[in-house]
């Protein structure tokens, strides 16, 4: 018999990645709702998951669907005035920088946010991301590259080579 680990282990092992993915796709406020809905849905479906399946990819797929639900619900609500995005700093990332990066990610178009979350944070290959988002693996790769370029511009991160060059 193929064994399946207790769901508690799944939450402990993959909870952090799913939270990062939800934050990148939705922002901090809605990320926790998406996380909770992802894991309650996963708990219900867990016995039917084939043994040996890639659990993290499965969770990211569920998180993607739950995030879309939340975005649709958000779009149905009257819009609220959002906070102005933080200004780009030329000094790099201050403090832990998490809120700055999240703000910057929040300014990207949805597809770029999704590709950055699924590929760079969760390690999903582009071909799997294409299945989630529609389109081709190449299109997903381009969206990811565009997203990273835009992030770099917003955060004004100076490439390492340039930093080294400037150091006397």
């Amino acid at each position: 018999m193929e064994t399946k680990q207790p769901f508690e282990h799944v939450v402990r092992e993959h909870g952090p990645v799913v939270l990062r993915v939800c934050r990148a796709v939705l922002g901090v406020d809605e990320a926790e709702d998406a996380w909770s809905e992802t894991f309650i849905a996963a708990l219900k479906a867990y016995p039917e998951l084939p043994p040996g399946a890639n659990i993290e990819a499965w969770l990211v797929t569920i998180a993607h669907r739950k995030s879309l639900d939340l975005i649709r619900a958000r779009n149905r609500r009257p819009s609220v005035v959002e906070e102005l995005p933080a200004r780009a700093s030329v000094l790099g990332i201050p403090g832990d920088g998490q809120s700055d990066v999240l703000d910057a990610v929040g300014q990207l178009p949805p597809k770029q946010r999704q590709v950055i979350a699924y590929h760079y944070l969760a390690g999903l290959p582009y071909k799997d991301i294409a299945l989630l988002l529609g389109g081709t693996a190449d299109a997903a790769r381009r969206a990811g590259a565009d997203g990273i370029r835009n992030l770099r511009a917003v955060l004004a991160v100076v490439p390492e080579a340039v930093v080294k060059g400037e150091t006397p």
Binding site: L19, D96, G97, Q98, I116, R152, L155, P159, E160
Partner: peptide, 13 residues
Amino acid sequence: EVSRLLAPLEAAD
């Protein structure tokens, strides 16, 4: 550089 860019998001909470 991409890792460096996204590193703050990796912070465990």
